[in-house]
């Protein structure tokens, strides 16, 4: 019993450490890639090739003044960044990053936990992730922030449905809600993106909308709402929002990898189980690059277009995908 707790603790600390490092260097990668695509140089002053830029940013943010507006609701203003950050961190607990490996004479699962309701856990956490943003908008006592919070809640509720329906495809094909089970099922057939191209696309689009990333970054549209829900935030509280958004990017990429692109699977995985981690990290990074690419390419949607697209196009498509998948399984099995 004690050894199980110690193992889980070590793994949790490791995952948190990896995610925070990933956050730091994702911001750096985004700025570098943006620079590359816009024919600029990007950050290159701090350290070799600017590699220490994230550390410099972090130190700067820690020493900035933390300002609380006079009319703000102090308790919720303080809680909101934390409530945004926590779901982003805990959602990855069910994602397997590799097959079971032997270490110190025991079998160790590469992943914190393997729930039999793993996917429902992901949906549940994703659905409560909106609170931090909404409460930040409300507690700031700022009209722009409130509008950003309202937009965020409407948008995330709308796209959650399409997101939930799009992951039903892999669930039906694998016959399980456990993520480890879904990966293993892809080992015996093939990557589910082959059977579920539409589902994978819906997942990516709805995932971007859940993240409030461009082109769905209505809640923080600079030109309309200054900075949306985090207009009044500064210092470490602001960076918590930032951290939440980037860690959620990593989480969505990891989930997409697991559900549609074979997770940690790859050549020679049975002989060298540790390779799984590299396959998994590589595929996740490819998705992260895709997200940055999309942000730099597409302009932002208008708010009414966003809602119309979510309800009138994405949701029927997702339903259609579920029906087609179910029919196919019944016919060909």
């Amino acid at each position: 019993m004690l050894s199980i707790i110690i193992e889980a603790l070590i793994k949790s600390v490791l995952v948190a450490f990896v995610l925070l490092t990933a956050f730091a260097y994702l911001t750096f990668a985004e700025r570098k890639i943006a620079a590359l695509m816009q024919v600029r140089r990007g950050p290159n002053r701090v350290g070799p090739w600017g590699l220490l830029q994230p550390a410099a940013d972090g130190i700067k943010l820690i020493f900035k003044e933390e300002f609380t507006p006079a009319g703000a609701d102090k308790t919720l203003f303080f809680l909101a960044p934390i409530l945004t950050m926590i779901p982003a961190l805990v959602i990855v607990a069910v994602i397997p990053v590799g097959p079971d490996v032997e270490m110190f004479g025991r079998t160790i699962r590469l992943g914190i936990s393997d729930l039999n309701v793993g996917l429902l856990y992901i949906l549940a956490i994703a659905s409560i992730a909106v609170y931090g943003i909404v409460l930040a908008g409300w507690s700031s006592a700022n009209k722009y922030a409130l509008l950003g919070g309202l937009r965020a809640s409407a948008q995330m509720i709308s796209y959650e449905i399409a997101l939930g329906l799009s992951i039903m495809g892999p669930v039906m094909l694998a016959g399980t809600l456990s993520l480890q089970g879904i990966v293993l099922a892809q080992q015996s057939s093939t990557w589910y993106v082959v059977w579920q191209p539409l589902g994978a696309m819906i997942f990516l689009v709805a995932g971007l909308a859940e993240l409030n990333r461009a082109p769905f970054d209505m809640p923080e549209a600079e030109q309309e709402l200054t900075a949306g829900y985090f207009t009044e935030y500064s210092g470490m509280k602001f960076s918590l929002f930032f951290m939440g958004e980037y860690i959620k990017m990593v989480a969505v990429s990891a989930i997409a990898t697991t559900l549609f692109f074979g997770g940690y699977l790859g050549p020679f995985i049975n002989e060298f189980p540790w390779l799984g981690i590299f396959y998994f990290a590589g595929k996740t990074m490819a998705f992260l690059f895709l997200m940055i690419w999309i942000r730099l390419t597409l302009p932002r949607l208008r708010y009414d277009q966003l809602m119309a697209f979510g309800w009138k196009i994405l949701l029927p498509l997702a339903l259609f995908n579920v029906v087609i998948t179910a029919t196919g399984i019944v016919l060909f099995n």
């Binding site: 309701v117 429902l120 549940a124 909404v134 809640s153 509720i157």
Partner: peptide
């Protein structure tokens, strides 16, 4: 666990977010 996750998704995640939305609106 299934009922637990449904409870969080539906009640804590969806219905209460809509409540908050209406209160704030």
């Amino acid at each position: 666990p299934f009922i637990a996750m449904a409870q969080v998704t539906v009640y804590a995640g969806a219905i209460m977010v809509l409540f908050l939305f209406v209160i704030m609106l």
